[in-house]
Design a protein around this nucleic acid. Structure first.
Length: 111
DNA sequence: AAGGTGACAGTTT
DNA sequence: TAAACTGCCACCT
């Protein structure tokens, strides 16, 4: 049994479940993992997500305000916005337009 | 081994 | 109202 105890790996699995054209927040992922207090770790995990396989759609993860807080950690500061726009998500002032509407909750999978 | 870091979030001033 | 502070905890050096 592979030890999937790693918090990061758990985060990656959830992030990969984010549908295209949708976004979620770090806190939502942490909450889904039962670690609502570890929301910072979620973002921290994304920093290492670039080395993960398959690649994790980190661009679909924003903070609770819908701001692209982690855009500076991408290849280019604007890469995150481009990826979002490529999926039909409008980004304005480094924030997702209609974030609340595009927000995707991991719990929506269960029902 | 111990301390510092940080792509957040909630609370307080 | 907005801005600033603290808590938080798994990973990294």
């Amino acid at each position: 049994m592979a030890k999937q105890n790693d918090f990061f790996d758990s985060v990656y699995q959830v992030v990969r479940l984010i549908p295209e054209g949708r976004v979620t927040s770090y806190g939502a992922i942490a909450n889904y993992l039962g670690a609502a207090r570890s929301s910072r770790m979620v973002g921290y995990a994304m920093n290492a997500s670039f080395n993960e396989m398959p690649p994790v759609p980190a661009h679909r993860v924003v903070n609770r305000n819908g701001q692209l807080s982690g855009r500076k950690h991408f290849e280019h500061p604007f890469k995150m916005q481009e990826l979002l726009e490529a999926e039909g998500i409008q980004v304005e002032d480094d924030a997702v337009v209609g974030f609340q509407e595009l927000f995707w909750d991991p719990f929506s999978l269960e029902g």
